[in-house]
Amino acid sequence: MTRRAHSHDYSLRSLQSLLGVSRRVVTGLIDAGFVQPARGRRNELRFSFQDVVVLRTAFQLQTAKIASRKILRAIAKLKKELPQELPLSGIRITAVGDNVAVRSGPAQWDAASGQHLLDFEVAPVQGEVAFLDAAPQNLRNREQQADEWFALAEQLLETDVVGAEQAYRKAVALAPRSHYDASINLGVLLCEAETRCEEALDVFDNALTHFPDDALLHFNRAVVLEELKRYDAAFDAYGRCIELDPTHADAHFNMARLSEICGDNEGLLRHLSAYRRLIG
């Protein structure tokens, strides 16, 4: 499947508000060449989802009490020393004490001094630059990272659907046993695209391997199956939702509608009655 290009939906001011990054840090990152924003109609800077992730790293380093001047100095030095062909996705940045440390492949070093570091735990995050704690990688860290990606997805949802999808997928992949809220929202997002219902079904099926007795997941899966016109499977999925949550009014309503489609007048009346009772 071809990935669509990211749109440049963020102004400098909106980024500062969203991430709490100072203008000095943002302009320093631009000068260092780590972000290459586009220009808007009035020649203003516009940033992409990829830029958001890079700038979020800078913000997290700030919250780790790394001085802005040290962040800028480290990034400027990195720009000079890293091979030109090294992609940005190959860089991992973290705070170690009050220093900025970097890992690229097996090598890890202090960003400002260039001194190599030993026994420095780096999580195997694929893709964009990500902020990592100095603490060893464990389940708690992965849960925290997953929650941060979910929060970013929620922030992007209204302005960058492609970016939100990627962030939801990051949350699902990082969470030790999948990420419930990210799975729900990702599946709904894909289903809303109409042509991606099969992908949405895969998301819900995967989530159900971790949360097999969740009524909402079964309901959403049933909606996707109905969109795909797999009515028998949808009916069974709605039925499972109602088994788990007899008060789920929407499941009764949808089962009533499916019963009507299938010519089951008894089922139509039974589920419609249950729906009216629950909402009344």
Rank of each mutant, 00 (worst) to 15 (best):
A175I: 02
L139H: 11
G163C: 04
G187A: 10
E165P: 00
E143G: 12
Q137D: 14
L152Y: 09
L186R: 01
Y168P: 06
V172T: 13
F131V: 02
Y168H: 08
A167N: 10
S183L: 08
D181G: 06
G187I: 02
Q155V: 02
R169N: 04
R142Y: 10
G163N: 08
W149P: 03
A173Y: 00
A164K: 04
A134L: 07
G163M: 02
A167I: 03
G187T: 04
W149V: 00
A135R: 14
A175Y: 03
Q137S: 13
L132S: 05
A171Y: 05
Q155L: 12
A135N: 10
E165F: 00
N141S: 12
N141F: 00
N138A: 07
Q155Y: 03
R169I: 00
N185C: 01
Q155H: 11
V162D: 13
K170C: 07
Y168I: 05
F150A: 04
R142W: 07
A134R: 11
G163I: 01
H179K: 08
H179Q: 09
Y168W: 13
Q137R: 09
D133W: 10
H179Y: 06
A130S: 15
A146H: 06
T159A: 10
A135V: 09
I184A: 02
T159H: 11
V172Y: 01
Q155K: 15
Y180D: 00
L139I: 08
R177Q: 14
Q166A: 14
D147F: 01
A171S: 15
K170I: 00
E165A: 03
A135G: 05
E143F: 02
D181T: 12
A151F: 03
L152E: 10
S183P: 03
F150H: 13
W149N: 08
V162Q: 09
Q145P: 00
D160L: 04
R169E: 14
R177L: 08
A164M: 11
V162T: 10
S183H: 03
D181V: 11
L139N: 14
Q145R: 15
R142A: 10
A175T: 06
E165D: 11
Q145D: 14
L157W: 02
L139G: 15
L156N: 10
K170G: 01
E154S: 12
H179R: 09
L157K: 13
V172W: 01
D147W: 00
A151H: 09
P176C: 12
A182R: 05
A182M: 06
